[in-house]
Amino acid sequence: MTSAPSPRAASPAGESPAPAAGPADPVDSLILHATDNGVSWLTLNRPDAMNALTWDQRERLIGRLADASADPDVRAVVITATGKGFCAGADLRGSPPAGGADGGDRVPGDVARMIRNGAQRFIAAVLDCEKPVIAAVNGTAAGIGAHLAFACDLVLAAESARFIEVFARRGLVPDGGGAYLLPRLIGPQRAKELMFFGDAVPAAEAARLGLVNRVVPDGELAKTAREWAERLAAGPTRALALTKALVNASLDTDRGTAFAAEATAQEITMTTADAQEGVASFVERRPPTYRGR
């Protein structure tokens, strides 16, 4: 088996390196993709633009995350970047027009529709992916780049990484689920502080607030991401998927609904081969070997 990709430097647009495969079209050179040891590595690759996310990159990432959900050979996902930043936000140049289908004047509803079909759909693809998703943040993550990281199940940050809620600086409200994600991660008061002022939050402070799971030296980011991803890839994939779904839904439901969902998820999990292996390994006092089924 080939070893997991070793990331290059990242840029402030939420990108960090992953294994490269031969590009089949231009977008393939902007979103590098490789699968290794059950891990799908997705690497933003526009270092000269600090990995600002274009429309076609976003659509490719949405497709790759859907593919990961459906592929039994993929059991974890890492999103990272090349250059000096993770993701500097959205690059609107080259995006489809926000106006009518004919590119005419914008009318009420056009922007809301663009946000629903664009930034919100993108963040939902991360939250809804049926495999655990790790963000390996190698540099600045700003705007939608920060929300991309926060939507992931686990966040690793290089010491040089920083997170910026840039929207108020531009006279805008947060999009891409920011006002949904941040209060759930750090509470409403802290979330408003970050969003009102738009100050850069260094990696160590982000970890203290609860936005990041672990901060590592820049040179150890790829290694740590590989270790975490391969641990997840060796785990009981369906149980992890259902656990992710339960946790993500927990803050939006009452106790009765949450308990009912938990019971249903356990019912489903108990029918998997991995659950049977988990019980058998316990009885036989040996490490389990999970197959993701």
Score class of each variant (00 low, 15 high):
Ile134Asp: 11
Val27His: 00
Ser29Met: 13
Ala136His: 04
Gln266Glu: 11
Ala203Val: 11
Gly38Ile: 02
Leu240Gln: 06
Ala168Leu: 03
Met195Ala: 13
Tyr180Val: 13
Ile144Asn: 10
Gly139Phe: 14
Cys129Trp: 01
Ala273Pro: 02
Ile134Ala: 03
Ala34Ser: 15
Ala98Asp: 01
Ala9Gly: 13
Thr264Asp: 15
Phe259Pro: 03
Asp128Met: 01
Ala161Trp: 10
Arg121Tyr: 03
Gly103Asp: 05
Arg64Cys: 14
Ala81Cys: 05
Leu246Cys: 07
Glu227Ala: 10
Ala275Val: 08
Phe163Gly: 00
Pro17Thr: 15
Arg116Asp: 07
Ser69Gln: 11
Cys129Asp: 06
Gly145Lys: 09
Arg169Ser: 00
Thr272His: 11
Trp55Pro: 02
Phe259Cys: 09
Met270Pro: 03
Glu130Thr: 09
Arg184Thr: 06
Asp25Val: 13
Asp56Met: 03
Trp228Val: 13
Leu182Ser: 14
Ala263Glu: 14
Ala34Leu: 04
Gly278Gln: 07
Ala141Ile: 10
Trp55Ser: 01
Phe122Met: 06
Thr289Pro: 05
Asn45Cys: 00
Arg293Gln: 11
Glu130Pro: 10
Ser281Cys: 02
Ala225Thr: 03
Asn213Ala: 09
Ala204Asn: 01
Ala9Glu: 10
Phe122Gln: 04
Arg116Met: 11
Asp218Gly: 09
Leu30Glu: 14
Glu262Asn: 14
Arg170Pro: 00
Asp199Phe: 12
Ser95Lys: 05
Glu227Thr: 12
Gly22Trp: 13
Ala229Ile: 07
Val137Phe: 12
Pro23Asn: 00
Val201Ser: 01
Ser6Asn: 05
Ala261Ile: 09
Arg286Cys: 04
His147Gly: 05
Ala249Trp: 03
Val279Arg: 14
Asp36Trp: 13
